[in-house]
Design a protein around this nucleic acid. Structure first.
Lengths: 341, 341
DNA sequence: TTAGTTTGTGCAAACGTTTGCACAAACTAT
DNA sequence: ATAGTTTGTGCAAACGTTTGCACAAACTAA
């Protein structure tokens, strides 16, 4: 029997039917008699017939494949988003192709091109740190391939996206610190051209405003938010403002770095300095003290993005209006910020 | 200009050439004159021509796509393996399709079928907890699609795989504990039908043997290795053997659970009980004390698996001999087990 | 009877490539 | 001048599906 895969025409030949009849029988077309359907199904089973998606995709102009581009998969966030994406896509009968840009816009461009060549039906993108403009995505638009951004987006009026309400997350975290009695709250911020970092920072600023606290530049430090950046940033902040008594970090990796510095200097958490971060990483509950953090609803973000993409795909030509879905974050209060109660 | 994508025949028409000539020009075939190539390339650029992989794949019987099935993507391990896979595959010009079985053999079967239908050129699998036999993979073999297992494998003589030397990792970890002066070392083990758990356990057994320590059943506890399993398991072990002074856990999640129990009972780490785990999770350096663990070379495992798969693919029909690659683990000694020095 | 409908099937084109073969034109060697 | 080779191009089939259209046979309604 060899390696040859049974095709529709093999079935047709053995059953003395035409390929079209077999094709219709397999897709349960109502014009085909029950008897014929039975015969076809039976033989298909016997011969281990498996449809060739490529051929069908070529003919139908639709591959039932989705493309995903993420900056990287380290850390929990993107892994969980991908999990959500894959789960829902699979349920809907779509395969998922997966690429990492490694935070390089050039690689991102190549990823997009590869996905387009593979004839994906839609694309999900979270942009890289080095992506500042839309250029390489024009081709996607030109071809009319549905595109949905998630988490890290390019803020254009004509695009669809699903994001977390990072502003609210930052606002909530900082309000919480203020309510715990913090008077001088510092911020470890990330690259400000990224929507997420900018919005979290803005939440910090506005929370201070709401409580009539001044915004002190000596209390703000920007970096790329690695753990080491957190350690270094915290040292700088403590030098600049020895009286600081709270920290809101743009992510948990930087926060854990800050925690190291705070401990090393013999300060107590949360009594001397209260800490809050962003992302609700797994390790937040494993450190001592456990870290307060804003949960990002990763899987839900992935699922929502797929849902939007599928809607756009099935809408086909009659373009659906671009839409921004904003997920509400949840502040998870843990030991690092809880001073009483 | 609409949504229509330029195809080879569009180029051909505009240049008064045949499709075959254009096709060859695009693939830089030596039978085509430089002049013609230039003309074709130029127009292709102007019209934003992008080849249709689907059509090429259909014709060539080769999709330049690899399929990956993993049990889940939570935690660091599989995420990093996937990173390694995607990186190398992309470099080699392959796209990657990605599926999760969620530890269900039934889902695994569906994943495999979807990948086969999508005509992937090769498949990488790490089996689910509930996979005990080869059945659903027969079809892969029947079709002659190259298959490589990684990490969690089905132990059959006729398959290729890349695994960690889990036995050695377990052996090294337990030897280390013995050298630190532990006399009664417990083991938190995982499902024994999984090669990785079985081998780590065997390493534990043999290390004890090497140091002429008896194997005490009261010191061994099996579970599914969640954090809670670790907590519960540790309580049971401490009841069964109050004199235990060391623990080797089959993964770090269970180990961190064990750590909680140990701390809660007021015992000191590592002085009273020394701890060692497996996987070198990110959080190992963030707990107090930091946890000793065996590093698994995740990305390298992914890259190696892809490399083997690509070799098999390019070998085509003349089947290459099944091969097992075994990566050597590294024991990372941290505070949780270091009693002196 | 006639005309019209329903039911089941087949023909053939199309999707966008790749590639074996053929062939004309232009050289090269005798 | 003849035969042989090289160079550049085109024809047409093939990959495995899907689908608009046609059509024969068997009903239904008058």
């Amino acid at each position: 029997m060899g390696i040859h895969r049974a095709s529709i025409s093999d079935l047709a030949a053995q059953l003395n039917l035409s390929v079209s009849t077999v094709s219709r029988a397999l897709s349960n077309n109502s014009r085909i008699s029950e008897a014929t359907k039975q015969r076809v199904m039976e033989l298909a089973r016997q011969l281990h017939y498996q449809p060739n998606h490529l051929a069908a995709a070529l003919r139908k102009g639709r591959s039932n494949t989705l493309g995903v581009v993420i900056p990287h998969i380290d850390g929990q966030f993107f892994a969980l988003v991908v999990k959500g994406i894959e789960t829902l896509a699979n349920q809907a009968g779509f395969n998922v192709m997966f690429c990492q840009s490694n935070e390089k816009v050039e690689q991102e461009r190549k990823n997009i091109e590869a996905l387009l060549n593979a004839q994906v039906d839609g694309i999900l993108v979270s942009i890289s740190l080095s992506t500042h403009e839309f250029g390489h995505l024009e081709e996607v638009r030109r071809r009319g391939i549905p595109l949905v951004f998630f988490d890290r987006i390019l803020d254009r009026p004509d695009t669809s996206a699903v994001v977390l309400d990072d502003y609210q997350g930052g606002y909530d975290a900082v309000c919480h610190l203020l309510e715990q009695g913090c008077k001088h709250i510092a911020h470890l911020g990330g690259p400000q051209h990224l929507n997420i970092c900018k919005n979290r920072y803005q939440g910090y600023v506005d929370a201070l405003g709401s409580y009539n606290h001044p915004l002190d530049p000596a209390l703000v430090h920007f970096s790329d938010l690695s753990m080491q950046d957190g350690r270094d940033g915290m040292e700088i902040l403590l030098r600049q403002a020895p009286n600081l008594d709270g920290v809101f970090a743009c992510n948990d990796l930087a926060l854990v770095g800050a925690m190291h510095t705070v401990k090393r200097q013999g300060l107590r958490i949360p009594q001397d300095i209260a800490l809050a971060g962003f992302s609700n990483e797994l390790f937040d509950s494993l450190t001592e003290p456990m870290l307060t953090s804003v949960d990002q609803r990763c899987e839900e973000m992935g699922r929502t993005a797929v849902q939007m993409l599928l809607e756009m795909i099935s809408a086909g030509d009659q373009a659906v209006a671009p839409r921004h879905v904003v997920l509400q974050p949840t502040l998870l209060i843990r030991e690092s910020s809880q001073r009483h109660g």
